[in-house]
């Protein structure tokens, strides 16, 4: 089964996106911590798509979310037709242990995404960006 949400790609979408992800996480029986990690991951990538993929490129468009669940996993798919961008190509911040004065903050959102969800993938499909977030359902059993 899949639930979907489509809305204009502006920062005002972040609230509805988080609500959509929360509802999907709740329906899949994810615990509070897993729900937070998933919500954060989708929020970070959606924020990047909206600000860098659309707004800074002078583009307008939509975000489309799908939530799929089966017995083992909950999968959130975020699609857009903004500037092509693969978040997994961003190097992980290697400065987390270095002194504050030398720290850069680039890539922190992607870092939190990759380390927050159980699986994160990017695909380029039919000239669209597709970001895929997967969480394991620990023993939840409503199929």
């Amino acid at each position: 089964m899949a639930d979907t949400l489509q809305l204009p790609a502006t920062l005002d979408a972040l609230g509805p996106i988080r609500a959509f992800v929360d509802a999907a996480a709740s329906a899949a029986g994810l615990d509070h911590k897993a729900s937070y990690r998933l919500r954060l991951a989708v929020d970070e990538i959606a924020t990047n798509v909206i600000t860098h993929g659309y707004e800074e490129a002078g583009l307008r468009g939509d975000l489309e979310l799908q939530a799929w669940r089966n017995g083992e996993t909950l999968t959130i798919i975020l699609e857009d037709d903004a500037v092509p961008f693969d978040p997994t190509t961003l190097a992980e911040p290697d400065d987390l242990g270095t002194p504050l004065e030398e720290r850069a903050v680039g890539g922190l959102g992607v870092f939190l995404t990759v380390h927050g969800v159980d699986e994160f993938r990017y695909e380029r499909v039919a000239r669209r960006n597709r970001n895929i977030f997967v969480m394991h359902r620990q023993g939840a059993d409503d199929g």
């Binding site: 937070y36 954060l40 929020d43 924020t47 504050l100 004065e101 720290r103 903050v105 922190l108 959102g109």
Partner: peptide, 19 residues
């Protein structure tokens, strides 16, 4: 109840500025 990396960036700027 919720922070994203945007919050971390704002706080980090405050840390740097205050120090």
């Amino acid at each position: 109840d919720y922070v994203s990396s945007a919050a971390l960036r704002a706080l980090l700027a405050g840390v740097k500025g205050s120090r």
